[in-house]
Design a binder for these strands. Structure first.
Lengths: 160, 160
DNA sequence: GTGCGAATACTCGGATACCGCGTGTCCGAGTAAGTGAGG
DNA sequence: CCTCACTTACTCGGACACGCGGTATCCGAGTATTCGCAC
């Protein structure tokens, strides 16, 4: 169960845009160069963020991507959902009602499978934590240990 | 990011063993028939539980698997770890220090990447929830809505 | 009837193929910027 | 000098291959049972 690495890329891209702050779009070429990532594949991942409404894409020369809403309004849950999709990691296939358990009375299956319930409970805790952390929070936490990172980012992306 | 379906199988197997309660081993053939699962592949998954110390295997005729410790001492975290492995779902590849950020002062990278920290925080919540739920808990929850399931299981596996 | 030994059937265990999804790449549509000529 | 149309270059966007890990299977090692025979 390994998470799509596009999630890591996406969060770093969103962070960079948050630090740049101005509404100017940044191209995938620049992002790819900034992190040594395959440009075309990174583009593919960012498209998912556009579809999810986290980024706006600007076509044409000097185009690129910019934040669709302020960093305070973008949670890590949004990012994970945009790239990984809405399906839960644990998917109950209802094996309890197959095989020998198939002829059990229907009333047994009215309520959800206890196994599924327990696993979903854990996933909900995960989701809650992701939803409680915004891009702005991550930015703040990063600046706590490396105050110069905002200026360095602006310089790396040709601002100032 | 889909979880190995062997996790679902494993929890159901452990639950069945908890309901049977006696120390008699149950073969994979019986489990596979009970849930309509591919026998050989189920066996492979249960081997992982043996390696993790959750099950004991009994070779030879009338052999099979039995619980290595009481259901109260087996958490869902144990099961997930046994099958999925110890690696976290989100793996930080430190892209912050590649490309343009490579020439940043070393002091910037002393503390962990904030992106990684945030994602691990969420995973920790997930792990905590998994670790707080034992097989015995799941059994209790299942019996709450379907009190007959214990007896049905014993009958399905030829007990009594 | 009882004890012993070999044959047997059944089980786990690891080594071996198959396949779908994440990973990576390429090319076309579209747009803004740049350029040059004409007024 | 200003305006405008054309060319150009750059960007996103989706369609097309590749490789790896999860999925599935098969066969061998080992053991408890069972059966038959001798005593």
């Amino acid at each position: 169960m390994r998470m799509n690495q596009g999630v890591e890329w996406a969060v770093h891209v969103l962070l960079a845009l948050a630090w740049l702050d101005d509404g100017e779009p940044v191209s995938t070429a620049r992002f790819a160069a900034s992190y040594e990532l395959p440009q075309a594949y990174l583009n593919k991942q960012l498209q998912a963020l556009v579809r999810a409404g986290l980024l706006e894409s600007v076509p044409g020369a000097r185009g690129g991507f910019r934040l669709a809403r302020p960093p305070e309004k973008i949670t890590l849950m949004d990012v994970v959902m945009a790239i990984e999709g809405p399906e839960p990691a644990f998917q109950c296939t209802e094996i309890r009602r197959r095989g020998m358990g198939a002829d059990a009375p229907e009333s047994q299956f009215r309520v959800a499978c206890a196994v599924n319930t327990s696993m979903q409970r854990a996933e909900l805790a995960w989701r809650k934590s992701l939803a409680s952390q915004t891009i702005a929070d991550v930015r703040t936490e990063a600046e706590l240990h490396a105050p110069a990172v905002a200026g360095m980012t602006r310089r790396a992306y040709g601002r100032d």
